[in-house]
């Protein structure tokens, strides 16, 4: 559907003067194409602007590699810069306390409950003894949803008084210690970052729990506003990372770049299906082609 960025860049460098190498003259149009592609991928406008500036500076200062055509070389610079921002490798969970505590937070409908159950299933598979905690007392049938998912994967779900999320959280910890669970996952209600009262609730839960991980769950289809919500959640809670859901669709996922930029926190997992096993560790290098709107060209450059 989109014209591949590679084809566009190829044309740019062919049609312009000084085609042998990257020059101030021909780089302008190439940079513009990358910019448009990133905006099309929903990378935040301001993030794009800064990113492009860094790329431009890099490209002009770069030595010519004889093994690459100018467009390949340019793409390599863009790719390297993207990987640099996204982080080179996957960052895993850091679960040191016993039991370890993971809090799942985020906007409404992003996939918190589903991701909580997916993580629990993953831990169980690894031989751990997880406990799920239903701390969303607001959304109709949210507790039921988690109970049903818990049943599917044979992981107990703590529901407490079904009324007070803060009390539920602290009682859940007593339960976890009593039944020697080694990892406890708290599913919280979806909320807007501008809802002060609800954000305060999260802060209180976090204060009581002192979680090992606070993961914000973000929908891969999110657009420009992701920077605002991620920023506030991070400032309120000191997130330890993100889970990006619904990447099984065809959204380009520019949100990954945006949130990494504004918070500096890594994406730790991605959701790739509605099913309970649909969660994977995030590998920055694998998503670069998707964000840029080009697939196989990158693997070609990788070989050089």
């Amino acid at each position: 559907m989109f014209e591949n960025l590679q084809e566009k860049l190829n044309r740019v460098f062919k049609s312009l003067s000084g085609k042998g190498r990257i020059s101030e003259k021909n780089i302008k149009e190439a940079v513009r194409q990358v910019k448009l592609s990133l905006l099309e991928a929903d990378v935040n406008f301001k993030v794009v602007r800064e990113f492009i500036k860094a790329v431009q500076e890099k490209a002009l200062g770069e030595d010519v590699l004889s093994s690459l055509t100018p467009d390949q070389q340019f793409i390599k610079i863009v790719r390297d810069e993207l990987v640099k921002v996204l982080g080179e490798k996957n960052v895993g969970l850091s679960l040191s306390s016993k039991p370890a505590k993971i809090m799942m937070v985020g906007l409404q409908g992003s996939g918190k409950t589903t991701s909580s159950a997916k993580l629990a299933a993953k831990f169980k598979k690894e031989g751990k003894k997880p406990l799920l905690v239903a701390a969303d007392v607001y959304r109709p049938a949210a507790i039921d949803q988690l109970i049903q998912l818990g049943k599917q994967i044979d992981v107990p779900v703590f529901v407490g008084d079904r009324k007070n999320p803060i009390r539920i959280a602290s009682e859940a910890m007593a339960e976890a210690i009593k039944n020697v669970h080694d990892v406890v996952i708290f599913d919280t209600a979806g909320r807007l970052h501008i809802d002060d009262k609800m954000m305060e609730e999260l802060k209180e839960i976090a204060k009581i729990l002192n979680p090992d991980e606070i993961l914000m769950v973000v929908d891969a289809m999110t657009g420009q506003d992701a920077v605002n919500s991620a920023k506030v959640f991070n400032e309120t809670l000191e997130l330890t990372g993100f889970v990006i859901t619904k990447l099984d669709g065809d959204a380009r996922g520019g949100v990954i770049l945006s949130i990494r930029h504004v918070t500096g926190k890594p994406v730790k997992f991605i959701g790739v299906s509605e099913k309970i096993d649909g969660i994977e560790p995030f590998h920055p290098d694998r998503v670069v082609g998707r964000i840029l709107g080009m697939g196989d060209v990158l693997s070609l450059i990788d070989k050089i």
Binding site: T222, G223, D250, V255
Partner: peptide, 12 residues
Amino acid sequence: IDATTGQNGLVQ
């Protein structure tokens, strides 16, 4: 359509 949706909304 969720108001937070980006360009994928058009594809949807």
